[in-house]
Design a binder for these strands. Structure first.
Length: 764
DNA sequence: CAGTGAGCGAGCTTCCGCTTGACTT
């Protein structure tokens, strides 16, 4: 018999708490929810006032039987799930499944894992809050209704296996709308004038100042005219302003801000960040990593202060508590921080170390003093033009938290070069070293990264810390969006430079639109998005979640009946489902691009059975239409007639080579040459299937055959020694075996190989 | 590893939020 049994959600938390509570307490975990709506069917009896049909999922049966066993052996049971809507529901399900008396079940909560917080919780138990539980049931059931009623409509009207949901569909919408903004964006250019001035007329090496003209010029001619004026102008310092300012540190990490910073500073994907953080949490190195709170425990504040004072001195310390600003934050946990702020580094793999260091710096910096800065602006006037040159610079008077950490920004063109402002005085004459005029193009809004999408979703109050990473995975797995790099396009520009009284023009190329690890909507994502906006505009509205959240709050406060709320939502919603099923045609995103220049047949693009397809003609008058798949990076929405026609040029014959035909085409894995029933991939970036020559094709074929010959070191029939990416290895029955270190692969006999295979086969 | 587009029909897919392993390469 155990005196006291405490049930928490996370096993790592259970371990820590058990230490604090002593031998009269046993702490076990439920591993999150233990019961959910039935997986088959809807799991909701709509006729019967939305009665939910809960079941214990298969993967939870073991945990539940362990919980049952522990509960039957305990005298007192304390349910310590998190203090939020989901945690309250977990408590209620636990009470139900473990057959606990609701009236006497002791529900306790704590926000930080310290001895004081836990004993305080034990001294102040309460009962389960049914209003809060009901708001969770409303949330759960609404999500099931939305997901399980709209998805089948998509299967019928768009494509099988698609999905829609309150969170994922809005995430896709954000990406699609941003992509369309980018399509329709027309870059405009104007000439920007940048000058480097010196203080001494004769000495070309004297102190200099970088400044930009207050005016931009629409074209090269105007810019040229201005530079001519610059050449004969006299310059002097007309004004100097010095503005003091402060910069404050960012709050400690939440899940969302950790994902953003780990992406920007470490290049981690959202899922990778969470996996590494999970490891750190399980090892007791950081606090819980799924949180929306920026609050630090008192203990963390005190410890951080000690670390700062001993490391940097008293004046670098400024203890702060940051209020969580996020909409709908439930604050069941602390911010993400080092479990022990005095540990500057940890043991672990490289990524764990990097992420820990990031969390440590962010936490400590948040408790450091503001930085004191001084922003200086120097105006330089011309004697023959109203245009003014401005030089700006920032001097850090006291670094404060900047000593340790600065937050990165999503802005890519961070061309704010920090130039030291040399001491100049009002009225002082200046002389130009050089003045350049270069066209500057306006840029479209940036594409989302995984992390910036999470940021946007959080701002809209959509999704929770535990679902950001899975949502990002879902929309990629469904094929709605894809994470990709794009090389960008070269742009030729002309730069004018005025130097020593002469204006020279140089041509330059710059790359625009280069993308790294960005989210690109795909055709199916755009078609589904448009279908949802046409038919379920309320659900994919950016405010939908915020509006239902308000009602969930009303339910939690006991001011609204949860089944009533669901009824209000469901009746019109279900009517829309039925109307859509009945009246709407299948949506393929079809576009007519025009007519074939020779035959006059119509050319269309649409989503076909196997993906986006272009079609020449139709089957009306007994003629057979021709089909070609769109290639990667082409979208139904933006493909041109010319590009579509091009698709039909492949596969094409390159003619004969040693009595066999060479055919070029684009397959599942990119452009290829088919020759003697073998496939040879074209080199990415260098070879183009439309313009590939016979000579180059033969070269590719020979190259591959050569390297394949080198691949086989020994051939014993069923056993082969091959040369792979990681060096020589043995293969048999499609299984590969590593060679022991120091083996000379050329000298292996068949018997040696069998020995190695048998050794390798031993179970680990 | 390497395109498919005739048409029909059975059986499958799907949500969001809590939590981690148990799998294979």
């Amino acid at each position: 018999m155990i005196e006291n049994l405490v049930i928490v959600e996370s096993p790592a938390k259970a371990k820590t708490i058990e230490k604090f509570l002593g031998k009269d307490f046993r702490v076990i975990s439920s591993f999150g929810h233990i019961r959910d709506l039935s997986k088959k069917n809807l799991g909701i009896d709509i006729e019967n006032d939305f009665a939910p049909d809960y079941e214990i999922p298969k993967e939870k049966t073991r945990v539940v039987s362990e919980l049952r066993k522990a509960a039957s052996e305990a005298k007192n049971i304390w349910i310590a799930s998190d203090e939020d809507r989901e945690g309250e529901a977990i408590a209620w399900h636990l009470a139900g499944v473990l057959k606990l008396d609701l009236a006497t079940t002791r529900r306790i909560v704590f926000h930080e894992i310290t001895k004081d917080a836990i004993s305080n919780a034990i001294e102040n138990p309460r009962s389960i809050d049914m209003n809060l539980v009901n708001s969770q049931q409303a949330r759960r059931i609404l999500d099931r209704l939305v997901g399980f009623e709209i998805s089948p409509v998509l299967w019928k009207k768009v494509q099988p296996s698609l999905s829609a949901g309150r969170v994922q569909s809005v995430a896709v919408r954000l990406l699609v709308e941003r992509e369309r903004e980018i399509f329709s964006f027309k870059p405009e250019s104007s000439f920007r004038i940048n000058a480097i001035f010196r203080v001494d007329e004769a000495n070309l090496e004297s102190a200099f100042l970088r400044a930009e003209a207050s005016k931009r010029f629409p074209d090269e001619k105007e810019a040229q005219k201005f530079l001519e004026l610059c050449n004969i102008s006299k310059y002097n310092v007309s004004d100097i302003t010095v503005k003091p300012g402060t910069r404050s540190p960012a709050p400690p990490f939440t899940t969302s801000t950790l994902q953003q910073e780990a992406y920007r500073k470490l290049g981690f994907s959202v899922a990778q960040t969470m996996a590494v953080a999970q490891k750190l949490y399980e090892a007791g190195k950081i606090t819980y990593m799924r949180t929306d709170s920026t609050i630090l425990s008192k203990l963390a504040l005190v410890k951080s202060r000690e670390v700062i004072i001993s490391g940097y001195g008293e004046k670098y310390s400024k203890t702060r508590q940051f209020k969580t600003k996020t909409k709908g934050a439930q604050e069941a946990h602390e911010a993400i921080r080092p479990a022990y702020p005095d540990n500057l580094t940890i043991t672990g793999n490289l990524n764990e170390k990097k992420l820990y260091e990031l969390i440590w710096k962010r936490t400590i910096a948040s408790q450091m003093a503001d930085a004191q800065v001084e922003k200086t602006t120097i105006s330089i006037e011309m004697n023959n033009s109203p245009v003014v040159f401005n030089a700006t610079g920032e001097v850090i008077k006291f670094d404060g938290f900047l000593k340790l950490y600065t937050e990165s920004s999503d802005q890519e063109n961070n061309d704010e070069e920090k130039y030291v402002i040399h001491p100049v005085k009002k009225g002082m004459p200046l002389y130009y070293n050089n003045i350049t005029a270069a066209p500057k193009f306006t840029a479209p809004p940036p594409r989302y990264t995984e992390a910036s999408l999470v940021k946007k979703l959080e701002e809209l109050g959509i999704g929770r810390p535990s679902t950001y990473a899975p949502t990002i995975s879902t929309i990629q797995n469904r094929g709605y969006v894809s994470r990709e790099d794009r090389p960008g396009e070269k742009r030729h520009i002309k730069v004018l430079t005025l130097e020593k009284g002469k204006i020279t023009a140089i041509s330059k190329t710059e790359v625009s639109g280069k993308e790294k690890s960005k989210l690109f909507p795909q055709d199916i994502g755009m078609i589904v998005n448009d279908f949802l906006i046409e038919n379920f505009s309320e659900i994919v509205d950016y405010h939908f979640t915020a509006e239902v959240e308000e009602q969930f709050d009303e339910i939690a406060m006991g001011r609204l009946k949860w089944t009533g709320m669901l009824h209000e939502f469901y009746v019109p919603f279900h009517k829309t489902i039925e109307k859509t099923l009945e009246n709407k045609d299948r949506k393929t995103g079809v576009r007519t691009l025009g007519n074939h220049p020779e035959t006059g047949e119509p050319i269309t693009v649409r989503m076909g059975r196997f993906g986006p397809v272009a079609q020449i003609g139709n089957s009306d008058n007994g003629s057979k239409p021709r089909f070609a798949s769109l290639s990667k990076n082409q979208l139904i929405e933006t493909i041109t007639l010319e590009e579509a026609l091009n698709l039909f040029r492949l596969p094409r014959s390159l003619g004969m080579h040693e009595d066999d035909e060479m055919v070029v085409g684009i397959g599942k894995f990119g452009p290829y040459i088919r020759y003697k029933n073998k496939f040879y991939s074209l080199k990415k970036g260098t070879d183009d299937p439309y313009s590939l020559t016979v000579e180059r094709a033969i070269e590719i074929i020979n190259e591959k055959n050569e390297s394949e010959k080198k691949k086989v070191i020994k051939d014993f029939g069923d056993i082969k020694v091959l040369n792979g990416r990681y060096g020589p290895y043995i293969t048999r029955d499609k299984l590969n075996y590593r060679l022991p270190k120091g083996t000379e692969s050329e000298k292996l006999t068949k018997e040696d190989c069998i020995k190695i295979i048998e050794k390798n086969n031993k179970p680990k």
